[in-house]
Every structure is written in structure tokens, then in C-alpha cells.
Amino acid sequence: KLLSSIEQACDICRLKKLKCSKEKPKCAKCLKNNWECRYSPKTKRSPLTRAHLTEVESRLERLE
């Protein structure tokens, strides 16, 4: 599967780190437990900047 097509777990399953069936409108866990089942939009991760990478590398060197 391509990364862009990976389905996201519902908010509660993601928060509780449960295996989500990803069914809509309610996944199996939410249906069974009568929880409100919501699927928040995916958040875009910002790409690493060179400055951040350099900072992490220098912190790693100090720890070694």
C-alpha cells in the first residue's frame, strides 16, 4: 500500500492505542462500548529543516 492511502484509526482508538477496525460511521470498538466515534483530519507533519537536523546532530555528539 502507498503511504498516502493508509487509513487512520478513529480518535479514541488512537488515543487509547487500540486496534481500530476503521469502519465508518462507527468502528467496532466504539460501537461495542457506545463511545462517540470521530475521525479527525490527518495532520500534516512539517518537513525537517536543516537547522533542526544540525541541532539534533550536535546534541547527539555531546551525549556520545
Rank of each mutant, 00 (worst) to 15 (best):
K1R: 11
K1Y: 12
L2H: 14
L2E: 15
L3S: 09
L3W: 13
S5L: 11
S5V: 09
S5I: 10
I6R: 04
I6P: 11
E7Q: 08
E7C: 11
Q8C: 04
Q8M: 09
A9Y: 03
A9T: 00
A9N: 03
A9G: 10
C10M: 07
D11H: 06
I12M: 09
I12Q: 10
I12K: 09
I12C: 11
C13H: 02
C13W: 07
R14E: 03
R14M: 00
R14K: 09
L15R: 06
L15P: 02
L15N: 11
L15Y: 15
K16L: 02
K16D: 00
K17D: 03
K17Y: 04
K17P: 00
K17A: 06
L18F: 00
K19C: 07
C20I: 07
K22W: 03
K22F: 05
K24A: 15
K24R: 13
K24D: 11
K24T: 15
P25F: 01
P25N: 02
C27W: 02
K29R: 10
K29T: 09
C30E: 05
C30V: 05
C30R: 04
C30L: 01
L31C: 13
L31N: 13
L31R: 15
N33A: 11
N33M: 08
N33K: 09
N33R: 11
N33S: 14
N33T: 08
N33L: 12
N34S: 12
N34P: 00
N34G: 12
E36W: 04
E36C: 14
Y39I: 02
S40K: 03
S40D: 02
T43A: 12
T43N: 08
K44S: 04
K44W: 07
K44P: 15
R45V: 00
R45G: 00
R45K: 05
S46W: 02
S46K: 04
P47K: 07
P47W: 07
P47T: 00
P47R: 07
L48M: 07
T49S: 04
T49D: 01
R50D: 06
A51Y: 09
L53E: 09
T54L: 07
T54I: 05
T54K: 03
E55S: 11
V56N: 01
V56W: 01
R59C: 04
R59K: 12
R59E: 02
E61N: 10
E61T: 13
L63K: 02
